[in-house]
Design a protein around this nucleic acid. Structure first.
Lengths: 227, 227
DNA sequence: GTCTATACGGCGATAGAC
DNA sequence: GTCTATCGCCGTATAGAC
């Protein structure tokens, strides 16, 4: 169906977009879904944004829901590959017995925050879209398809790094971690209201800086309390 | 408009439901919104569930979005009152200088988990609806109206319990806490796929048991790392 | 103040022409 | 592979009955 994320980064830094209709439609959908709600974005909006026709969307993706699914999975594949590559590198560096929890947490988060903190607005769009998508009913199947392989490898590694912590607790901690990650980018401007403007909602670097110690400590404490 | 959550608990344990049309419609909406998506629930579905007419919904609430808003705020008021009452009790018990972070975290979480773990299915419905609602675009205003007063009191108390932690970090940690709480009930059956069925998605007690130490440790570590 | 009946407009989806 | 015409459903607005 579609090929790559949103074009291939060339040596000179410029981007080479896939000019095929499906990828152009996915670019438009990604852009609009992240700025509006999925529901309030119409197929006509997407078609117009892509200089295309509603019929073309239906032809290439079938339904609006399938378009969203393709939109999520397009970058999910890349994210998961990056996570698995980082995990493999770390394992080869310190050995399977030598893994610690904090580097593992960083390895899992970093590809996502590379999108969030990067200069590419489209990457940020996707991150925000994903963060709001994961909590939807019926998202589980798509998320599982795109992310579970890497997630299960990490959960296994977390257990290695935290001996004495049962599988159930690690999995719940993992879900807490996901909750914190996504709340960083999905949680609109509420934090600005709560702090009278002291905290900036779009200061994602500030989230990342406190997120790693927060989650690391959470897992560590869980391991101590479960003998 | 509407009066109370979903009836008043009587001394003998039975419930006295408000028989007014608005509350009956809200009950139906709460039930359906939590089991389907907001979008895939139609006004006709809600009207049928409440033995009412679509016109009645429009008359009492105006729009579907306003119905959702009323649905969220109905119990939000109660939740926030409980949280503020618990906070006040704790403050009077140990004094403003003597507050510790873990009891504060429990005080904030407990009213929500009372709904999640209680015998009332409607309470659980609401908790799940809320957990998925908060991440929606444009939810911020409604959430702020229902929850910010209590949240700001708790953030202030968190700062008292964690001296040396700046307001920005406390607010971000607070958002992480919200992320973990909501991920406990919003995160469908993915955890079962990730653990090959070892962890049960609906075992909310298991979430609560590890959630408190997880978040407590997170805040504590943040305070240590920010001198 | 409540409720009912009806009509309108927008959207996603389908079928079929080109 | 692309586009157009059309259908059916849903949220909303309005007018009027009780």
């Amino acid at each position: 169906m579609s090929t790559l994320a949103s074009g291939i980064r060339l040596k000179d830094g410029r981007r080479r977009y896939n000019t095929g209709t499906p990828d152009l439609l996915l670019d438009a959908a990604e852009y609009l879904f992240s700025r509006m709600d999925y529901e309030s974005t119409t197929l006509a909006d997407i078609a117009k944004q892509a200089n295309a026709n509603v019929g073309q969307i239906v032809y290439h993706f079938g339904t609006k829901e399938e378009l969203l699914r393709a939109c999520i999975l397009r970058r999910a594949v890349i994210l998961s590959q990056q996570r698995m590559k980082l995990l493999e590198s770390y394992q080869q560096l310190v050995g399977r017995q030598g893994m610690q929890i904090e580097p593992l947490i960083r390895a899992y988060m970093d590809p996502f925050f590379a999108l969030v903190l990067g200069e590419d607005d489209q990457g940020r769009d996707y991150a925000r879209l994903l963060a709001r998508f994961v909590w939807r009913e019926n998202a589980t199947e798509i998320i599982a398809e795109g992310f579970n392989e890497a997630a299960m490898l990490y959960i296994d590694s977390f257990r290695q790094a935290l001996p004495g912590l049962d599988e159930d607790s690690v999995a719940r901690g993992f879900q807490f971690m996901l909750g914190t990650i996504y709340s960083s980018v999905a949680g609109d401007k509420r934090i600005e209201l709560l702090t009278d403007g002291v905290s900036k909602a779009r200061d994602y670097q500030a989230y990342y800086d406190v997120l790693v110690p927060f989650v690391t400590a959470g897992f560590t404490r869980m391991a101590e309390h479960k003998p």
